[in-house]
């Protein structure tokens, strides 16, 4: 971590901040206020770069021209539209709103929302109720069933699985402050899937650019952090051979090799791991936000 608190120099070096793009209010990003403006811009550079890349490819004709700005206020929008606040992801002309802490994105719940499987044409009556105390908590059912492991090969092959989520199936008493969504009628018309999600799911060229860019940025992050660990720790034996005086140097009553390898190596590895987990989560967040807007 550098002095000014920027953690992933990892990302910032790779994607320099483009000067021509407007600064974005940080509250639109994950609903989290950040004291350090760098943190958000760092994380946001990647999709901007992606967009530019896509637009460039579209201009070259290598990718079918895709309107990546259907419902966003991109850099090509008239300046006036941005006056009301809001960045790329806000509705045009909308007033800025404070982030809602209890907001659960529709796609985070496994309801058939836009971008998912079209619902069956029969009458549907569904009741969903969820309680969220902690705004940072992830929704229970956010993880979709990962598919191809046969039941028998799961974690516990020896036991039959009891019924899932009994507590979710039982109707709960209504508590004030609880968020509910009630759908009582058949859906009218065709569901309109979000374009980018479908792109990514079907791995059209656009989707492939998006997903391979996610993989590349994650790999670059992992290689950098791994490289820091390997070079720092790997330099020690050579240093002890080249400069034998280091091996006899005492600090806090301990010989330097004992202090470095016996004590300090562990917090060092922990800090690297923590930095990595945070940055990798952020990259995923940016990817997800990007393709869902």
């Amino acid at each position: 971590m550098t002095n000014d608190g920027r953690v992933p120099s990892v990302v910032s070096d790779q994607y320099p901040e483009p000067a021509d793009l407007p600064a974005r209010p940080s509250h639109l990003h994950r609903g989290k206020q950040s004291a350090d403006p760098d943190v958000d811009t760092l994380a946001d550079d990647s999709p901007m770069r992606l967009r530019r890349e896509l637009r460039r490819q579209a201009a070259n004709g290598s990718v079918p021209a895709v309107d990546t700005n259907t419902d966003t206020a991109g850099p090509d929008t008239a300046p006036g539209a941005r006056v009301g606040g809001g960045g790329r992801h806000s509705r045009r002309g909308a007033q800025p709103r404070p982030p809602r802490l209890d907001y659960v994105p529709r796609h985070a719940i496994s309801t058939p929302g836009p971008g998912s499987v079209p619902v069956s044409p029969t009458d549907v009556t569904e009741v969903f109720s969820r309680v969220r105390q902690d705004p940072t908590e992830r929704p229970m059912s956010a993880r979709p069933e990962s598919e191809p492991i046969p039941r028998s090969a799961r974690v516990e092959p020896l036991f039959a699985p009891p019924p899932p989520f009994p507590e979710l199936e039982a109707p709960e008493p209504v508590v004030p402050g609880k968020r509910e969504r009630v759908v009582l009628s058949q859906r009218k018309g065709q569901t309109r899937p979000v374009r980018t999600v479908v792109d990514v799911q079907e791995l059209t060229q656009v989707g492939e650019v998006l997903s391979s860019s996610l993989i590349r940025s994650q790999l670059a992050l992992a290689l950098r952090i791994g490289g820091i660990a390997l070079i720092t720790l790997g330099a020690l034996p050579a240093m002890f051979v080249i400069f034998p005086v280091l091996g006899r140097f005492e600090l806090f009553g301990l010989r330097l090799p004992w202090l470095l390898l016996g004590v300090l190596a562990y917090p060092f590895l922990l800090a690297l791991g923590w930095m990595y987990a945070r940055s990798a989560e952020r990259l995923e967040q940016v990817f997800a936000d990007h393709i869902q807007n």
Binding site: P144, E145, Q201, L214, Q218, F287, A288
Partner: peptide, 25 residues
């Protein structure tokens, strides 16, 4: 292969697991 790799790296909440993708197709 690209689809497999995407499944390894995309966050779960996007629901890019294979069963959903197949149903879409």
């Amino acid at each position: 292969v690209p689809r497999l790799l995407l499944r390894l790296h995309a966050p779960e909440r996007l629901g890019l697991s294979q069963d959903r993708t197949h149903r879409l197709n």
